[in-house]
Amino acid sequence: MNAHLQPTGSAYFLTQETQQIERHTLSVLVDNEPGILARVVGLFSARGYNIESLTVSETEHGRRLSRITVVVTATPRVLVQIKLQLERLVPVHRVHDLTAEGSAIERELALIKVAGTGEHRGETLRLADAFRAHIVDATVESFVFEVTGKPDKIDSFIALMQPLGLVEVVRTGLAAISRGKESL
């Protein structure tokens, strides 16, 4: 994947990467301007970094700043590089590794469509209640639920809906914020 992960850096004498892969959530504060998302995503693909999840929205309208929350998997060395490479981009203000800086609050929203009739509907509603999923649309043959929480909670809910008539799922990707009074 990344040439620089290999101690020899040479195609003639390949060696294996020994560092463990970790999953980290980065919060990236950027100027909201045309092409910024392409710049960030392009950097990941150009340098062979892996994106697991990506969430983008303008968060400060007055200063036209957007917050990009990106979940990446990489070795510790590469994680540092990702942060520094992102900070090299001209419209990037700051990059915080929320995972490294302590336990951040991480939430995701999903809209989940489940179709079915008869006794499945009752079971579906009981499980939705247990997961605090809201019904945002209902027909005699279907429900659309809105569920928020950590990604693994949403994963569990989707898995439970599978045999009950799961039709489709849409997820926002992760939003994350640090605990305490400090800001980015």
Binding site: R77, V80, Q81, L84, Q85, R88
Partner: peptide
């Protein structure tokens, strides 16, 4: 002058 050069290789 480029922080990303530090510890890259």
């Amino acid at each position: 002058i480029d922080p990303s050069s530090i510890n890259k290789i």
